[in-house]
Design a protein around this nucleic acid. Structure first.
Lengths: 187, 187
DNA sequence: ACCTGAACACCGTTCAAGT
DNA sequence: ACCTGAACACCGTTCAAGT
């Protein structure tokens, strides 16, 4: 049923019509409204279950290859969506979530889980003295997330969605952001 | 005439109707389409002339207070829009620009001008040895932009649009990103 | 030449009627 | 109980008719 993702993917949230989604799902309009209260509710449901699969992979990478590589893995996954043409849809989701609390609330829950994962990995890396110990893990996790999202959106806007280039840009940012700043070092 | 910005501001791009805009501008539907070919063309026009006023202020700040303070000034200006409730509109513009070349092309032109300004200020700061000289100015300018945009959107999504907190987050990011990285220093 | 506004094609959503 | 699909209210856009 959620395979009506296909319609948003093909035409974007505002361009796709409920009738197209009904046709794709082989269902009537009335039946669709039995499962989802509105069009906005559908993006909520989509964005919600798109996360999570990669959580285990992230934590394993953080342990085995270090925080930076794990972050780049997450980044690549996100940047790939833009290369696949989902950029406008992602921006639509942002817009809808900023505008509508009913959309934002469920998304914030899954977002918080991802942030918590970042925080956990950051603390572990600090314990290993792999990165700057003076960074606030919560703020750092959010800034890294903002960096990934900003880079992805911006490159889509500039029509250069090559994931390799995007990861390289993010890697340089994360590396510099996380490394002990000269002014803060104590030895 | 462009005071129909008001409608987008109040209700967002997709929620505002052409009839509302016509009423606000005291004009008929036919007349509106004489000036703008479509609804999408209107955001293009809006976003286009929203830039530019602050270019002079940025360059002056960069000279007198250093690159970091000038960046924070730009950041604050952008974050203020989210605090004013324009966050969803900004995300809409992103979505529309990613989806539609006709919207993106004029926006990329004004964007390029702002990036060029950042690049210029970055080069000057490198000449002063104020920041890391090994940074590519073009990439750095884009990454800083992505950081501002990402932080703004993300904080709007998380319903915490306080400009002071946003600037503080961005300042820490920019400071660490720009400072000479230990591994790259030569002395 | 320029503007008007009724009309058009189409959208998201609903709800009486069927099974 | 659940689904259908015509109908509703409303959208962005157009274009014959006016000035």
């Amino acid at each position: 049923m959620d395979a009506a993702i296909e319609c948003f993917r093909r035409r974007g949230f505002h361009q796709a019509t409920m009738q197209e989604i009904c046709a794709e799902a082989a269902i009537s309009a009335g039946a669709l409204y039995r499962y989802f209260g509105s069009k906005a509710e559908i993006i909520g449901a989509i964005a919600e279950d798109k996360r999570g699969d990669s959580d285990v992979a992230f934590l394993r990478a953080a342990e085995q290859q270090g925080l930076l590589e794990a972050l780049c893995l997450s980044g690549r996954e996100f940047f790939q969506k833009f290369a696949d043409g989902d950029g406008a849809l992602i921006a639509d989701i942002f817009a809808e979530a900023i505008r509508d609390d009913a959309v934002a609330t469920p998304l914030r829950k899954t977002d918080a889980r991802s942030v918590a994962l970042f925080v956990k990995a950051i603390k572990a890396a600090q314990a290993r003295r792999e990165i700057d110990v003076t960074l606030d893990p919560e703020v750092a996790a959010n800034t890294l997330f903002a960096g990934i999202e900003g880079i992805g959106l911006r490159r889509a806007f500039l029509r250069d969605t090559d994931p390799d280039a995007a990861v390289a840009q993010f890697r340089a940012f994360a590396e510099r952001y996380l490394s002990p700043s000269p002014s803060a070092r104590h030895e």
